[in-house]
Design a protein around this nucleic acid. Structure first.
Lengths: 219, 219
DNA sequence: GCCTGTGAAGCTATTCACAGCT
DNA sequence: AGCTGTGAATAGCTTCACAGGC
């Protein structure tokens, strides 16, 4: 891969989705052998051309007779998306939402485990919550360095989110998945994905009231 | 508002965000009197021109001397986004994630309450979970009609998401907030917002590894 | 001078249209 | 015939640039 002219955010998201659709297999759960672009497109809810373009950008080729080899495609997407030796993430804020996410992500992507959680509640310190060890905040620099963590998931209340983000970045994190409803202020070298559930709900409520003729899907 | 030439998804999302920033007030939590577009922009993490354009599309005007009146702007966004008499939502799938969302949304937007939850676990039937009454799935048509619910939040496992979506639509729902990692198949008149946390985490992990020079924000 | 409001330009993402393969 | 691969066209979103003024 010589140049990799900075692949867009959206393409990465779709590749992740394609992989999951391929892993899930066909409607009866059987592993797929080959897929055509229009089949994968319909599973992922996008157009067939878009699938072909996306696969083009990772340099994966199909065959006009049989389509794309599913196993090879899963492997190619993995080679592109995943860190070769795996990659650890951490989560800060072990409240209701944090616990739900720990439970949600555990075992889901073995190459991208949540290796540590942090919370400032002393009750939680050093306990294992939903399969993940919880540490006090002041251990953050040590643990993040030890585990080589570069991804932080923020599930703290809005008021403390910026503070937590600053601490994570200082400890070496370079990508944030932020569930707090604030716009984090970070240097441009840091990637942030915001999941703002209140905005999402308000959007759905708004369009649910509109007469008709709408588009679907999002992200 | 005579025409309303189908406002985009993204603008609605930002309006929701602007409102929340305005409600939060300034850095010390004091209510704001007036704001300039660049102030609101910095709170929301977008450009000042974009703020001005967005407010233009809802027909809200500022004043070159003082900026925008914060109270009036909050009210204008509310008049635009909210259903006049409030609007009920429901949630299906009272597992870890569902409970966390019930807790998260309660009291957050009084004009958009989650009025009912559904789950097929008989243990949960008719109990109040996180302040929300939980009903068996077979009560869905009745409750959704009674409560005039048009918004459904899907927090069930991927395998049952399509089934649940079909049931919700049959009962009269016209907008879905889907947390299950599948592309739901719905008629084009139905609006769907997908929150795919696995994809988001994979995106963050990918960009966290990239050398530098990235953009931020998302959605 | 500093802000709002906005036509026009610029970018990015997606689709169109079709050449080429098997 | 039906599919992949891709230049060209289109659509949609954001920024530029500047006119005008609680």
């Amino acid at each position: 891969m010589p140049h990799t002219q900075s692949i867009s955010d959206k393409i990465i998201g779709r590749l992740s989705l394609y992989r999951r659709m391929l892993e899930r297999g066909d409607s009866s759960g059987e592993p797929l052998d080959h897929v055509f672009s229009h089949e994968l497109a319909s599973m992922a809810g996008v157009s067939a051309v878009l699938v072909r373009r996306d696969l083009m950008t990772i340099g994966f080729s199909g065959n006009p007779k049989k389509g794309y080899n599913a196993g090879e495609l899963i492997a190619s997407i993995g080679a592109f998306l995943d860190a070769p030796g795996g990659q650890n993430a951490c989560l800060v804020g072990v409240g209701n939402l944090g616990r739900a996410l720990l439970a949600y992500f555990i075992y889901r992507r073995p190459k991208l485990p949540i290796a540590a959680a942090f919370d400032n509640d002393p009750e939680l310190a050093y306990r294992v919550i939903r399969g993940c060890r919880c540490h006090p905040i002041h251990d953050m620099p040590r643990i993040i360095a030890q585990e080589r963590i570069r991804v932080g998931i923020i599930t703290v209340p809005a008021d403390s989110a910026q503070l937590v983000a600053d601490q994570l970045l200082r400890a070496g994190v370079t990508g944030l998945l932020n569930f707090a409803p604030v716009a984090l202020r970070v240097p441009p070298s840091v990637y942030v994905d915001n999941i703002d559930m209140t905005t999402s709900l308000e959007k759905v409520a708004f369009f649910a009231r509109q007469p008709a003729r709408e588009k679907e899907v999002a992200k």
